[in-house]
Write a protein that binds this DNA or RNA. Sequence first.
DNA 1: GCTGGCACTCACCGGCAACGAGTGCCAACC
DNA 2: GGTTGGCACTCGTTGCCGGTGAGTGCCAGC
Lengths: 336, 336
Amino acid sequence: MSDERRTRVLRAIVEDYVATNEPVGSKALVDKHELGVSSATIRNDMAALEAQGLIAQPHTSAGRIPTHMGYRVFVDRLDEIKPLTAAERRAIARVLSGPLDVDEMLERTVRLLSGLTHQVALVQYPTATKAALRHIELVDLAPGRVLAVLITDSGQVEQRLVDLGQTVGEDDLAGLRDAFNRELRGVRVTAVAAALAAVTAAPELAAARAAIAQAIAELAALVRQERLVMAGAANLARAGRELGEHIGPLLEAFEEQVVMLRLLASMADEPDRVSVSIGSENALESFATTSVVASSYGVDGTEARLAVLGPTRMDYPTTMSAVRAVARYISVILAE
Amino acid sequence: MSDERRTRVLRAIVEDYVATNEPVGSKALVDKHELGVSSATIRNDMAALEAQGLIAQPHTSAGRIPTHMGYRVFVDRLDEIKPLTAAERRAIARVLSGPLDVDEMLERTVRLLSGLTHQVALVQYPTATKAALRHIELVDLAPGRVLAVLITDSGQVEQRLVDLGQTVGEDDLAGLRDAFNRELRGVRVTAVAAALAAVTAAPELAAARAAIAQAIAELAALVRQERLVMAGAANLARAGRELGEHIGPLLEAFEEQVVMLRLLASMADEPDRVSVSIGSENALESFATTSVVASSYGVDGTEARLAVLGPTRMDYPTTMSAVRAVARYISVILAE
DNA sequence: GCTGGCACTCACCGGCAACGAGTGCCAACC
DNA sequence: GGTTGGCACTCGTTGCCGGTGAGTGCCAGC
């Protein structure tokens, strides 16, 4: 019982099934792959693989399809990740060229990834716990109403409308702006709440000071907060029946960033390695028929991830290579 | 041949079909609605309605379902829009209370609308052709690299990374910022491009000035650009089969704002009226099995729309009232 | 440990009959 | 003329049946 051949059989089953979406039988297997043995032998191997829980048959007289565990083993025994084609590499370089701010770059990345893999793509914003405030701007829009804009040294911008609770003249507003900038400039977003106490203002501006401080604290929290962008939801429809018609819950989950972030966060993370979560390995019930291929990206400490999500019946090697390539590419860009 | 009764029959068919999703027959009709005549009479009316193209039967021995034209007539003859329940009114007031900036408010509105109607909701950003620049901020992030932030008096904020093409000291940067603000403050976003010519700078800062001017022009264009937010795509999955499994193209369209904006723009628009576009009346092929219920909102000149999108088999009265109520509500808020 | 052979299982397909919901039409009625 | 009860007809749905074939499990032999 050549153990090595069984691995080859499993691999062949996964590949054929992914390609055709039909249960694959012993005969078809010996025809398409040069296994050098007869179909009866393959049948024995298949029986063994089924006993191990790696493959299953939908009904008695049908071929076999991989189980989640089968995919798992297939992925684990994947020694080499198929390299991208030259055209794909060029596409990546083309889409991500030029000076881009964070928003624009992640937007492009997520579309690129979804286009390359024909799946749903997710890209998490680089966590900004290390980001520091660069500038605070206060713009009066209406009497007693101000727009507070917070800018970090990572180039992130957040704004919020503030009800001052009093009317403030232009000069006083300028004074407040200077006061806040003096104390907060260079302060980490994680330390903003504490630093706000040091900001002082004339007694008659106390209400305005308090309202602005409150807003800035919330904006800083917003910067810290994890976020992500997604693209390619339409690809789910293609997968259709395969997901057991459970598209609804998936689309719902997509609309709740928190849920998707939790999904990403629950995955194992080995730096510079692509990790794969298959079917029921996923933390959430609604994702039991999907797989997630994820990788972290960015440079030391900037803990962010990107991922591709699709049905468990997915071309893992290609998807994994795309995820890895894109992750590496944008890591390089971010490093500059 | 009471013409008025035929209208009642059509209405009854639409209501029953929307409720049950099954072809409705003459017998069921006389049972559930007090029409005061026998099923044979109804059959005659149905034959007439079918001749007019308002209803159709999926196959010979089945009941009738409304055609797109049938829905059209049903909607046109709807004299009163069913008022919202008190609970719904309260929900609207609760969700949209408090001081909110534009982003936050539209975000909440779209979720609210999708929740109320159990359909996909779209809310267009108020067009900002009248918006004027309030402030421009230049923040240096790295040597020779600056984040340009543009703030309008409507509270919209746009930013962009700028490659200066030269390194600029802190004082020079402040000088540039003042120069730009001096010339651009209060200028309409539509007139920014022209006004930029008046901004001058020392000869050694020419490259930086040009780069920044270019970025500001693009940011102003971005502000002018129409945008929208969406929510409730998951509700499409529920509609499922009904859309003829054409969910894919719909989801694809959702990812392209331009497409959705075109869809909205192509709809008739009578101020303060809810307009409905049914099935093939929609401008786009992919939306041939859906209906769009839209209304404009905002105050004089601020041409923005919100809409609800769902399968043609939709509860039009309820949807229309929800759309109208939400549109009116946020118009009032925006007016302040 | 591999192979050929063989009996077995079972989804799938086409045909067929029974069923029933719903229709169209017609003669009679108010 | 509009309305009504009656009736024949259509046709999708359901269930049943036998044939077909892909694919399997097992066994005896090499």
